[in-house]
Structure formats: structure tokens, C-alpha cells
Amino acid sequence: MPTGDVLALSHNDSFEVVVLPHLDAAHNLARWLMRDAEAAEDVLQDAIVRALTYFPTFKGINPRGWLLQIVRNAAYGSMKVNRGMQMVPIAMSEEDYSGATADIPSGDDDPEASLIKARDHCYVRQLIAALPIELRETLVLRELEELSYKEIAEVTRTPIGTVMSRLWRARRLVTQMAAQKGWKG
């Protein structure tokens, strides 16, 4: 399980080497928090510039957690500024959701199998996106970014006990929603 990423910085460890490898994780978290491709890119841009600014004070422990914390701050800041926008109902970006409906058609034909698979993924993403933000971020950091409880607690500034109960609620909600729609694993 990829956790920690603990490393000691030497003088020639540049921002590019230490921080930019975690751009995917940063972008992913931004997308899950913002639920909008454009807003997520703005947040990512903002976070990367902030990270560069604070890089001189970064002590070299867990750059991924450090960057994700900045992304989260940037995302929450942006939501505060654009509070009106956040009231818009969930809309997945085009890249996430290309017209497939939440009702998964049944069919076992090989040519359709991959399409069904793609729609399943899309559907699971919708379920995650529908979670309240504090459950969503906890679930995404654990299941998709595979952070440890301690790392999630640090990124979300939340006691570990709360992380555990949020994670539990998030998982139950998603499986229950999936079961309600008759989605089978």
C-alpha cells in the first residue's frame, strides 16, 4: 500500500522532483472535491502555485500528503468564495460522464461488456460524487489515493476517530445506494 513517501530532502531536490510527481493525486482530489473539471483545474493551479511558494518551508516528509493538504485548502477556499456555485446539483464533467445513464442495462454480450463496464465505473463515480463532502474526501483519500488513517487525519485536519466513522458511513452509503439501484458488483 503506497503510504508515507517519507524522504529526506537534500539541497538539490527541486520542486519538480519532490512535488510534481503527485500532480495526478492532487488533480484527482481537486476533481472529487469540486465535481467540476474547470473548477478543479483552477484549484489545482492555485494549489501548485501555493505549494511552490511554501516549498522552501517544506521539511520533506510526505510530499503527497503535504500537497493534498494544500489542494484541499485551495478547494475549500474556492468553495467559500464561490459559494453560490457549489449549490448547483451534482454534475459530472464530460470526461467522467459521457451520456451513460445511471440505469445499467443488463446484457452479457461480449461487445457490450466493455461498455457496461465503463458505465459501471461511471455509476460508481456518481455515487461517490453524491456523498457529502466530508464523507467524499475521506473515502477518496482512502479508497482511491490509498492514504493511511493518519495521513487522512492530517490532510483533512480531523481526528482519526472521526476519519474512521466518516469512512464507515461513506462506504455504507455507497454500497447501500448501489444496492438500491440493483447494481451488482
Partner: peptide
């Protein structure tokens, strides 16, 4: 929990 993880771990990781 096992069922939940099956849902999530099948998702392809989205790269930037």
C-alpha cells in the same frame, strides 16, 4: 467492506 472495496478498486485511476 469487501463489497464496497470491489466497487472502488475497479475504478481506473484518473491521470491528469
Amino acid at each position: 467492506l469487501t463489497q464496497a472495496r470491489e466497487l472502488f478498486r475497479e475504478l481506473p485511476y484518473r491521470t491528469t
